[in-house]
Amino acid sequence: MQCSYFDAERCRSCTWMGQPYAAQVAGKEEHCRHLLGERPDLVWSSAVTSAEQGFRNKAKMVVTGSVEDPALGIVDADGVGVDLRDCGLYPEGLRSTFPVLAEFVTAAAIQPYDIVRRAGELKYLLVTQSPDGELMVRFVLRSQEAVARIRKHLPVLLGALPLLRVVSVNLQPEHKAVLEGEREIVLTAQDTLRMRLNGIDMHLRPQSFFQTNTEVAAALYRQARDWVDELAPSSVWDLYCGVGGFALHCADGSRDVTGIETSAEAVTSAETSRREADLTRLDFRVGDATAFAVGAGREPDLVIVNPPRRGIGPELSRWLEGSSVDRVIYSSCNATSLARDLAAMPSLRPRRARLLDMFPQTTHYEVVTLLERAA
């Protein structure tokens, strides 16, 4: 993939841009295998590759410039906005929203936030596209000053974007590198975006996390489901469950599945999906993954973990190492923290692994491993 923004040095976010895609995947596999070390009993499946471009289902656009001429993209090292509306990582369904949203910013007179001067209102536009092409748009604002105008002009925006289903305002009053604040104001009757993967309807609320690459996420969930179906455990915990992707894929009615997640918004999303699917042996709860495991007083047959980049950490690693859990599926977006956690769980050995290229043009990737307790 070639990118005019990268070639002109206007954006260098994609550090591997221009490298042959096969070489990118091979480099990621080599990096991951090196971190996990030589393990004769570890079987690697072929990597799941991605489309080289147009694969992102979410755009996080910094809004700069003026009301009359807003720029949607990133800011450079000097705090100057760089408009990236034609970024090739976004599919056409997302790219087509950017000029409409820029016009809306002008019509609703929402002043873009000036990082240097610490003035203005609109910090980010967050746009998510579902597998069916439906859209969620979130305005990240410094205050409620523009909310009334957004409400007033919202019918025009809904008319211009027929597939727009959810619109909200997130309030982030602080001047710091935090994408969003705690308070969300939903402006549409519909408050979840339906994300249909592998025949399963998942729901995404405004403050819920979803994997960036829809097709590769679907492959990740299929892989975990295949391993679980093969092992046939009677009980499963999905720790760091998010909106319930792993849990929903593994809950076929033959086993008890519990999902744990700190985000109440994500659990509400997961519970909506569970209720619609009428999965009576699936349970979602708000809570800390480590605290839940340590304090549960019982142990499942299999645990799925999908932690943030920092990994599961020493306490949960110690608990798993000392537990009677025989199998763990560990999905990681950071093989460095995965390797550190594996070192703390020597009895749980990786038997199968698969790299999934969730983030083409960058050094990042996902890897999923099946751990089995040594005899």
Score class of each variant (00 low, 15 high):
E9R: 15
R10T: 08
C11H: 06
S13N: 05
S13G: 12
T15G: 01
W16H: 15
P20H: 01
V25E: 06
V25C: 06
E29F: 02
C32R: 01
R33G: 02
R33S: 04
R33C: 03
L35H: 03
R39F: 05
P40C: 00
D41G: 11
V43H: 03
S46D: 14
A47D: 00
T49A: 03
A51T: 11
F55P: 05
T64A: 12
S66I: 05
S66F: 06
G73W: 09
V80R: 09
R85L: 10
D86K: 07
G88R: 12
P91G: 14
G93M: 08
L94S: 10
R95Q: 15
S96F: 02
S96P: 02
V100G: 09
F104H: 13
A109F: 06
I110G: 07
Y113F: 15
R117E: 04
K123A: 09
Y124G: 03
L126P: 07
S130R: 00
E134I: 02
L135F: 13
M136D: 02
R138M: 14
V140W: 05
R142C: 07
A148L: 08
R149H: 11
R151K: 06
R151L: 02
H153K: 07
L154N: 04
P155N: 09
P155H: 14
A160K: 15
P162A: 01
L164R: 00
V167R: 09
N170R: 00
N170W: 04
L171D: 14
L171T: 12
L171P: 11
P173Y: 02
E174A: 13
G181A: 03
R183Q: 15
D191F: 00
L193R: 00
R194S: 06
R196C: 12
R196N: 15
R196K: 14
L197H: 10
N198T: 05
P206C: 11
S208T: 00
T214Q: 01
T214E: 00
A217I: 03
A219Q: 12
Y221G: 01
R222E: 03
D229E: 12
D229F: 06
L231Q: 14
A232I: 03
L239V: 06
Y240E: 08
G244D: 10
A247V: 00
C250D: 06
C250P: 04
D252H: 04
S254K: 10
D256N: 05
V257G: 10
V257T: 12
S263H: 11
A264P: 09
A270L: 15
R275P: 02
A277P: 08
L282C: 11
D283G: 03
V305Y: 00
P308F: 07
G311W: 13
G311T: 13
I312N: 00
R318N: 07
W319K: 09
V325K: 04
I329S: 11
Y330H: 12
S332H: 06
A339V: 02
R340L: 09
D341L: 13
A343Y: 04
A343F: 04
A343C: 05
A343P: 04
A344H: 01
R349C: 07
P350K: 08
A353W: 03
A353T: 05
R354M: 13
P360D: 03
Q361E: 11
Q361V: 07
T362M: 14
Y365A: 15
E366I: 10
E366D: 12
E366G: 10
T369H: 01
E372H: 13
A374I: 01
A375K: 11
A375T: 14
